[in-house]
Write a protein that binds this DNA or RNA. Structure first.
Length: 269
DNA sequence: AAAATACTCAACCGCGACACG
DNA sequence: CCGTGTCGCGGTTGAGTATTT
């Protein structure tokens, strides 16, 4: 038994929206709010299917949309997020105020893909196109490197506050540095540092955020704790940590809920 | 100036997830 | 548990525009 279509295809307008249709839609949503897309077209007096109305509103008519070209910062953020999330455009868009998933998807396909390719980076994997060299390096002793999108280096102060130590975040995991040296050498020539913050936050402000950390030793997840981090500018992350035992505690990353930072299985809250 | 080609991006389509009876 | 309806997502299309030949 087939599913009934979302709307009767006959007697429906398709293609580009007219100014009058836009005005009807905006006016209806302003007075009645979003939602119930199925019944909206009839109520608003539009010969469009609900799907089409929803798309038009979300991608074009919403008042909070940002117009104009993408900034360099937005470019970088999109690349970073794509390296983590893949083609999850809606998740990426959630981190870029005023931008829609459709817009980012188009921008990715028309601009960023080309930009990365011109730098010798595979846009799908965010790794160098010359995979052969990388594979050879990976085979060498003690260079067991898992699939990696980018590496972020940060400085950690020990509990006494006396000593500082370099550490690396790879795919959300805090790693011992010797395990990622090879990746630093062979990785893409891009600044892929990622700051973690709640959605829609002004990145310029000093802010605190919380995340769980998992140390990797001998390829085993061996401990976890919650870390409070304070970000002051885009070039550094300082950490102060609080030990907790958090074997079953869920936490947020990029506005998502997950227990382990496995970006390939993230789900919306 | 005209034709061909490349590019952009709004809109469409099909599918999966989820809610509900 | 199953069938149905709705919503939202990601991939794709194609009309309009820009650039090149």
């Amino acid at each position: 038994m087939g599913r009934s279509p979302c709307c009767e295809k006959e007697h429906m307008n398709k293609g580009a929206w007219t100014k009058e249709e836009d005005e009807r839609l905006v006016s209806y949503i302003k007075s009645h709010g979003e939602g119930c897309w199925r019944s909206l077209p009839r109520a608003a007096g539009l010969l469009r299917c609900g799907k089409s109305c929803r798309l038009r509103w979300i991608n074009y008519l919403r008042p909070d949309l940002k117009r104009g070209n993408f900034t360099h910062d937005e470019d970088e953020l999109i690349i970073k997020l794509h390296s983590l999330l893949g083609n999850k455009w809606s998740l990426i868009a959630a981190r870029l105020p005023g931008r829609t998933d459709n817009e980012i998807k188009n921008y990715w396909n028309t601009h960023i893909k080309r930009k990365l390719l011109s730098k010798g980076i595979d846009p799908a994997t965010h790794r160098g196109i010359n995979e052969a060299k990388i594979s050879d390096l990976k085979k060498t002793k003690d260079q067991i490197v898992k699939d990696v999108s980018f590496v972020t280096k940060f400085e950690e102060t020990d509990k006494s506050g006396d000593q500082k130590q370099n550490k690396y975040i790879r795919n959300g995991l805090v790693c011992k540095e010797e395990r990622v040296v090879v990746e630093e050498k062979i990785g893409p020539d891009l600044n892929l540092e990622l700051r973690i913050s709640p959605p829609w936050q002004n990145q310029r402000e000093i802010s605190t955020c919380t995340a769980s950390r998992f140390y990797m030793e001998n390829d085993m997840e061996c401990s976890s704790e919650t870390v409070k981090c304070q970000t002051e500018n885009s070039s550094s992350i300082s950490y102060s940590s609080i030990d907790i035992s958090s074997s079953n505690v869920g936490y947020d990353f990029l506005g998502l809920k997950t227990r382990i930072l496995d970006f390939r299985s993230l789900e919306m809250k």
